[in-house]
Design a protein around this nucleic acid. Structure first.
Lengths: 197, 197
DNA sequence: TGAATTTCTTGATTCAAATCAAGGGTTTCG
DNA sequence: CGAAACCCTTGATTTGAATCAAGAAATTCA
């Protein structure tokens, strides 16, 4: 019986959060995985490149972001321990991406390359089902954030952030949070002052 | 050999856009499908309810939207012929949704209930793979729209809409487009006047 | 440790889009 | 067909957040 002290235990725990994942299937999965160490501020994917890996975070924090022609950035999401970070549009179709993935901390990642990921998703049924459910979660989060992005005031966005993702406040610089909420650092600073004073 | 004049041909065409879909698998799929006629303005899902169906549009136009506590609405997306419309967070987990799905035209839909959909995705491999790819497309679209929602000006948003989804302009009222772009109908009207004059 | 860099705060000002308001046009449907 | 409801446009006004600017604080790393 696989347990929590073994390598890959974080991944197994995450898989079992959404589906029944028999040990025998997990033993088919682990040989497909590569370990990667990342530095703070290291890039894992840059706009214009083709995504070659799907990442699972054992330790650290990644951001996925878009940049417009003026060089302004918007963070699509942050992912931390037990989260996945990928850009499948590019990864699955071998086309250049518009998105960037950057590490914001020293981190430890698990990675699948294209061949191994496609093998896993087509030959390990519980992984397939896990993946569909995980994609669905991301999808739902994005739909909600898209609605909120244009309907909420800066203060409402910050309140929601505090309520829903307070742990991120402790590990991210405020200007990254501003770029996530879609407001300027100055506005964020003023909201925080107002709420504290 | 299945062909384009049969029932469900639109669905088959769409499935084959993303994966190889053998006739024998398609014949396993079609018995799982229900046909639904919808009226203009009919609701297929309301916030607070549990989603019981996944819809494929043969004819018509659906919008998926969020409403805030002031009753203001934001359209997450519009889907037309050959598109899917669903809220899997609710559908797969049997929990109430935050989202609404409404028909904007008289329409003809194909629908899967929960039991049939889960059967299809677990027992018809090409459908599984199709679904992962379709989810990934939605995901990518949402990430891009989320970034654009907070970084672009109203005029840039309308320009992009004209460039990327011009066909929607011809079939939707302008206030629905405004609620999609995240601007007021007045602002949209002024942008259009400026561009035409 | 300390200089250099980066990040955060605060103030003054500007401006674009929201809001408020009202009239004209169009569609719906009894 | 005609009244009612809905949708779109235009104008006047307000306002909240962006921008511009500068200095303080914190962090990085040689």
């Amino acid at each position: 019986m696989l347990n929590e002290s073994m390598p890959y235990s974080l991944l197994l725990t995450e898989l079992r959060r959404l589906v029944a994942f028999p040990d025998k299937d997990f033993l088919k999965l682990t040989p497909l995985i590569e370990r990667i160490q990342v530095k703070k501020h290291e890039y894992l994917l840059r706009a214009g490149d083709i995504s070659r890996k799907v990442y699972f975070i054992e330790k650290g924090c990644l951001r996925q972001y878009l940049m417009n022609s003026n060089g302004e950035e918007r963070n699509v999401y942050f992912k931390v321990e037990c989260g996945w970070c990928s850009e499948l549009q590019s990864f699955l179709n071998n086309i250049p991406t518009d998105l960037n993935i950057q590490s914001l901390e020293v981190g430890a990642l698990l990675a699948f390359n294209q061949k191994n990921w496609i093998y896993a998703v087509t030959h390990i049924p519980p992984f397939t089902m896990y993946f569909i459910k995980a994609q669905q979660e991301t999808n739902y989060m994005l739909k909600k954030r898209l609605g909120e992005a244009t309907i909420e005031t800066p203060e409402e966005k910050y309140d929601r952030f505090l309520k829903e993702e307070p742990q991120l406040l402790l590990r991210l610089p405020l200007f990254q949070i501003a770029a996530y909420l879609g407001i300027t650092p100055e506005t964020l600073s003023r909201i925080r002052k107002k709420l504290s004073g």
